[in-house]
Design a protein around this nucleic acid. Structure first.
Lengths: 342, 342
DNA sequence: GATATTGGCTAAAACGATTTAGTTCTTTTC
DNA sequence: GAAAAGAACTAAATCGTTTTAGCCAATATC
């Protein structure tokens, strides 16, 4: 059984293809199609189970009603939730989302952009990797709107971005730790040259400095992104072995690192918060259920998704030729969720 | 800056559109295009950054090199991993995957099938909901291959399915519990008429029966799918309040229920396995990290993804007109991961 | 009563590819 | 040296839509 096309409908209803198209697109009234013909066409279309071919439609109109979402890794809880919120939001605007993961690899990111571009998505929401600004500029040059999320390019404010205020988030966390009397705070971060991580790191040093605490060599542990789970776990374990003596608190800068940290803490049987206070950037189910529960800096995931989507929609609707006004990245506030670990 | 099309290349290279097409599709040799022309075209295409429009290509060829993946909820760890494994596998065969969630709602599932069908995906991998068999038959009638995963329709063996052997999995879990001396086992399951859950339930009763244990009224708790997280949690809490006296073990039949159960157990401060032995169908990061660690029946997620994908590919390549041979659902073995909770 | 206007439709181009059936030279073949 | 074969391309149809321009008859306008 073949699919039914608009011309099948036209033939069966005894009208032209154009007429069917007008009826199917609610342009029948504007095109002054008579009441009877409209009904006739609608009935035939229903009977035959007609579904317009979106490839043909997209080819003709240049619009696919699809947006491309590129995240780091869809199986990570943070990105999964972000994706879900964007998808739900997109549905409200009648857009479909197709998503894919870069695994933080810039070549893979480029491939994905190409792939989505070939599939003619109307716009993009991207969690960028390093060195992706040029590729994104090209999309913009083709008049395809792009909104960055979670990360941004500070020197490119012509690319809109929606993210959490990382500097304020980490500052708040550090102030909380220090306010509770912890002055020897170890930071576990992921290797990255990207601005959002630099902002987090800068906040760490600034807060220490503000309190007259000298940063200690080796207190900032950088886990290389490429290391596999086992290696990374080993590194975190080695670091945390010094808990309680060399340092009294640890601040994990990502959700992934936090989970790894929990695993190490469990293995090493470190008493939290007795021996070690623990704080993590980004929430995760595990942090709520672990004993003790882990305090976190929680990002407003839904809000990021909604704001990114509304920013994108605004640009999708802005059909004018003139470039869109430049704008600074939109930074939302992350809040501190106090639990038992500090 | 507009996108460059095949005719832009043709014009600039001074050849016909056909020639460009042949070169771009590696049919140049078969079509006896000369070495110089091939190079010329390739250079121009590279310089201009030509990327074929997949809508046009798909419209013409009827193949989009895209498969539709419909799962229950992409933000659930089990489905997220399944999706990732299918995506990775698809890449090997040069297919792109677009995925979406039904939230277990059969109307939503139908809408998604329609949406994917309009976008002309070449094939489907579906975690079906109730009453979806007819809609799937329609896809097959249109010559679009479908492979079910995780669930199946026992009375429809013309729809291929890849899933775990649920009956054997639960049997194994029950035998383990009973072997360890637990004879009062509570089962927490999700409301469903679907065969895979019936298989699990049947295994529960069969094993009890085999050991001469009479099933107790109220020992099988069914959490309605529609209930929100809070309500469901409350129900599980109420149930588990009797732990240690009325019953001595609990078997959660899904990952989601297990996590909910952990939350309840934590809240009620139930001693595991002292007061209550805990076992769950499906693994989850939390089960590895919770104290005590939770034993699980682990599904071979990667294998399910790979087998589903290879089954689908086989059918995608099978262009013949005659229907594909019918076949029983392919059932893979789940293994028991023994941890501390039992 | 000729000309505009309106109502109700349709023809055909266009989107960007793929693919079949040619076309035009040049080289073999007998 | 005419016919056949081969080499190197190209024209045009096609996929399923949308959309612009236009056709024809009936009615309104002067």
């Amino acid at each position: 059984m073949k699919k039914v096309s608009i011309s099948d409908i036209a033939r069966k209803a005894g009208v032209s293809v154009s007429t069917v198209s007008f009826v199917m697109n609610d342009k029948a009234v504007k095109m002054r199609i008579s009441r009877e013909v409209i009904e006739k066409v609608e009935n035939v279309a229903r009977e035959m189970g007609y579904r317009p071919n979106q490839l043909a439609r997209g080819l003709r109109t240049g619009k696919t009603k699809t947006i491309g979402l590129i995240v780091e890794n869809i199986s990570n809880a943070f990105f999964a939730k972000l994706a879900k919120s964007i998808e739900d939001e997109a549905k409200k605007y009648d857009y479909k989302v197709v998503y894919c993961s870069t695994d933080n690899d810039e070549d893979k990111a480029r491939d994905l952009i190409n792939m989505l571009s070939q599939r003619q998505v109307d716009g993009y929401i991207i969690v960028p990797t390093l060195n992706l600004a040029e590729d994104i500029r090209k999309l913009q040059a083709e008049n395809k709107p792009v909104v960055l999320i979670d990360r941004y390019f500070p020197q490119h404010d012509e690319i809109p971005a929606v993210l959490v205020d990382n500097y304020e988030g980490v500052s708040g966390g550090m102030e909380y730790l220090i306010g509770k009397g912890y002055r020897k705070v170890v930071l576990v971060t992921i290797e990255t040259e990207m601005a959002h991580m630099k902002d987090r790191l800068r906040a760490y040093y600034d807060v220490l400095n503000r309190h007259g605490i000298a940063p200690v060599d080796g207190f900032v542990k950088v886990v290389p992104y490429e290391s596999d789970r086992e290696t990374a776990l080993k590194e975190v374990e080695d670091l945390l072995a010094g808990a309680g003596t060399a340092f009294d608190a640890v601040f994990f800068l990502t959700n992934y690192l936090g989970v790894l940290g929990i695993e190490a803490i469990k293995k090493l049987q470190i008493k939290v918060p007795g021996q070690l206070a623990v704080l993590c950037f980004d929430d995760n189910d595990i942090f709520r259920l672990y004993t003790p529960t882990i305090s976190v800096i929680r990002q407003p995931i839904e809000a990021i998704g909604q704001k990114a989507m509304s920013t994108l929609i605004e640009r999708l609707r802005h059909t004018g030729e003139e470039a869109f006004p430049e704008n600074a990245p939109l930074m939302l506030i992350a809040d501190l969720v106090k639990r038992e670990s500090i």
